[in-house]
Structure formats: structure tokens, C-alpha cells
Design a protein around this nucleic acid. Structure first.
Lengths: 223, 223
DNA sequence: ACCTTTTTGTTGTATTTCCAACAGCAATTC
DNA sequence: GAATTGCTGTTGGAAATACAACAAAAAGGT
């Protein structure tokens, strides 16, 4: 089967045309591999020097702790990548496993071959490297932002930190957030009902007003 | 003044020899610039396409929220970089400012010039790109790990998540952590005394034993 | 050895957060 | 229109956490 459209939609190959992708795949000697349901793709503890791009099916990133408790950390669907941070960081053992949730096809890309330009005429290589750096940097900013909110001690502060950032990002005191209440609570790692109470308190106290996912921050005067 | 040794100690130029750094700096057309105390180096809201490497002095990364509250997010000393994530992510406006805490010298590096190999013979360029990717990926893993711990709902779970990860990283049930109690509490975003209480409870309940910064996780049997 | 400072554990109390359950509301389906 | 479903806000009691303060232990300096 031909997965070019899936590959083209990935962040890594973004901006590269279909026919160029064909040759790039060859140049990178990317390997396509099929996995059965529940088969382990990457095993926690090992080191990898290649990343995965899901072509079909679904992959779970799973962490197992000292006592054997398992947690699903993410759910990777077609066009999404996994393992790129571990593959790009030197000599960092995997702290997670990757497991095929169902019959799954993965395209493996060797980081060394991405970073080593085959010939000076291969322009797509440079494009690929820029994309990779952009992906890593973008993820970095997302994570940093989330940590800034979550490290606040109270639910109220977490909310204000998040909403302030959204407002500044939107460039306006009125803005829409991409979460419903349950999702926002999970993002901020707090209880939904406790968060709802804090939201109404903030509204009562004049910090903000809201209706569904539309929020409006107010200049607040503590008299 | 000659800052070669400072540059050489940075993660970005790691593994590159002094005399090669000299020519690389020129090839990258890196710009050295001095800042007075309290001068703004990067301003929140603007977009940048270059990163900073502190040669002397000290830089604070500062965030200002919707209501004007300021928070110091980090403290950048010589040989450390700042702004690389924003410079590498495409079109992401700065969500923070960079401010010189004292008289400071910064080396600015244009990302485009790092990513665009000057000539196919410039081997150091490829090295630099690998270093940059390694830095971004490594930071990514650090942040992801921290988020995994912090998103746990209770202090006890945060502790177990962190200690389990440290144990697995050390490859042993007994290991040393790089934090004292106050620092660990800050890292996990909890109250120190509450954390101390949880630690002794965990010890009483047989999950672990500890002495100062040495911890020992135990197989736990809930009978 | 002495004093000082830092770090850690503990206590009691106030506050916050969690949890489970429910009610109001809007959108959807039949 | 009735029934269903999903989302939101609210409640009250239980549990966890924060906060302030103090004591014991450890580390450092003179």
C-alpha cells in the first residue's frame, strides 16, 4: 500500500512534495514494518537511534514504574511520530515503551541518516532537518508553557496562569479556549468540580467573566 | 576579551576544538553585544530568529502575565544559552523576556546560518546542528519527565513517580537524588513539610527507606 | 569545642482540594 | 415532544495539603 499522503501530512515532511518524498524515503533508507496487536515496538530501557512514524493503526506510549504499574502516556495515530526525542538525544535510554494497540504499520527513520546530508545537492535533507528542529522546539515551548501553569500551587493560580497565557497569545482580553471543563481540568492536573468552583469565585471577585469556552479577563482592582 | 573557553563549554559547541570555533564564529557571523544592568535583551511578544549565548554576566528569563505580575523563570549564566526554542520554532512569539541582571555580554547566533550549511566541506556545521538537536531533544525529555511527576494528583504519587524514575535511571533500587528536601519540593511543586510527612509515611508503610539524599525503594506487599 | 547556620522532621490548625452525587441546561435522537 | 446524552455548576463531607512554628540533627566556621 502507498502511504505517501500519510507521510506528507506529518510534521516532519511538512512542505515537501509527494514526488520528492518518494526519493527522500529511499535516500533515508527508511524501513516500513508491520506489527501485530500488542506487539512491542520500542522497549523501555533500550536506546534507539531511529524514530517511528505511524502509517496505519495506533501506537501507545506506555510507562512502567519501579513497582510495575503501567500508565498510558499518549496515543499516536497515523501521520504522528514517536521516539524522536529519545532518538535525537544522545545515549538516553527509553523511559517508556511503544506498543501497537492494533495491527499497525510504522515507518522507521534513522536519525543519523537525516542529519548526514547525503550530497550537497539534496535540498530536501536540509528541509527535513529544519522541520525536525521546528518540531522539537515547538514541543519544547508547549511543555514549558504547561509546566509554568501546573507548577502553581493553587487551582486558582493555575487557572489564572493558563488564562493569562491564552489571552496574551490571542492578543486580546477576550478569547476562546480549546478545552471543555473536563479537559482543562486534566490539562491543569486538578479536579474538575474544584476548578469550576474556582472559576465562579474568580468571576464573582471580578477577575474575569466567561460563557462556555469564551473568557474575558478584567483589569482587577484590589481596593 | 576572548571568550573561546566559555563558548567551548557550551552544549552547542561541545566537542568542537578551540581553533575550529574561531572560524565557525566567523562563518556564522555571530555577533557579540554588551548590555547594561537591567537592559532588555529580548522583549516578550516579539519574534526572534537568533539565540543568545551568555559570555559574561547573567541573564534572567522573565514572564509578565495579563495583570503585570512578573516571575523569574530562569537564571542564565556564562556558557548557557537562551531563546533557542523560540528561535528554532517557526513564528512563535516570545512568551518571556530576557533581561541583563548585571553588565552582560551575549553572543547572538542566527539560526538560519546554523541550519544553512555554508559549504559542503564545513564539517563543523553538521556537528553544530547535531548538538542543537541534541540540546532540544534532551530538554524535551527533561520536561516530559517533570510533567509526568507533577501531573500526579497527590504528593505521595508525585514522590513515587519521581523516585521510581530516578531508581530506573540509576539502574538500582538504591540511588542518590540531586536535590535536598526544599529543592525536591520545589521541583515537584508541593509544600516541603507536607512532602516530609509523606516521605516518612512511605517509609513507615514499607515502600522505601532513606537517609538524607540516598533512597532505597522496596518491593511493596499489600497484604 | 563552641557557636552559627542549614537542613530535616514534626506538630497543630486553617484552608484547599478531592470525591461522589445531583440538578440545570443545551443539544441530539427517536 | 419525550427521552437521552453530554457538559457545567453546585453541594456537603472526607481527605489531603498548605502554612507557620518549632525542635532535633547535621554541617560549617572560628
Amino acid at each position: 500500500m502507498n502511504y505517501i499522503s500519510i507521510i506528507k501530512n506529518s510534521q516532519l515532511f511538512s512542505g515537501i512534495e509527494s514526488n520528492d518524498i518518494q526519493s527522500l524515503i529511499g535516500c533515508l533508507s527508511a524501513k516500513e514494518k508491520k506489527f501485530d496487536k500488542n506487539e512491542v515496538i520500542f522497549h523501555q530501557g533500550e536506546a534507539i537511534d531511529y524514530m517511528g512514524l505511524v502509517l496505519s493503526g495506533c501506537v501507545h506510549i506506555v510507562k512502567e514504574d519501579f513497582w510495575g504499574n503501567r500508565t498510558i502516556l499518549s496515543d499516536i495515530t497515523p501521520s504522528q511520530m514517536f521516539g524522536e526525542s529519545f532518538a535525537c538525544a544522545n545515549k538516553q535510554d527509553l523511559t517508556v515503551s511503544a506498543i501497537a494497540v492494533e495491527a499497525t504499520t510504522v515507518l522507521f527513520l534513522d536519525i543519523k541518516r537525516i542529519l548526514t546530508t547525503c550530497s550537497s545537492t539534496c535540498l530536501f535533507h536540509a528541509h527535513l532537518i529544519r522541520n525536525l528542529i521546528s518540531v522539537l522546539a515547538g514541543k519544547n515551548l508547549m511543555l514549558t508553557g504547561k509546566i509554568e501553569h501546573i507548577t502553581k500551587r493553587s487551582t486558582q493560580e493555575k487557572l489564572l496562569s493558563y488564562l493569562s497565557a491564552e489571552s496574551i497569545k490571542a492578543g486580546s482580553a477576550m478569547f476562546e479556549i480549546p478545552f471543555n471543563r473536563q479537559q482543562l481540568a486534566e490539562y491543569l492536573a486538578v479536579d474538575r468540580s474544584a476548578m469550576s468552583i474556582e472559576l465562579s469565585r474568580l468571576q464573582k471577585e471580578g477577575f474575569l467573566t466567561y460563557h462556555k469556552n469564551i473568557f474575558h479577563l478584567k483589569e482587577h482592582f484590589t481596593n
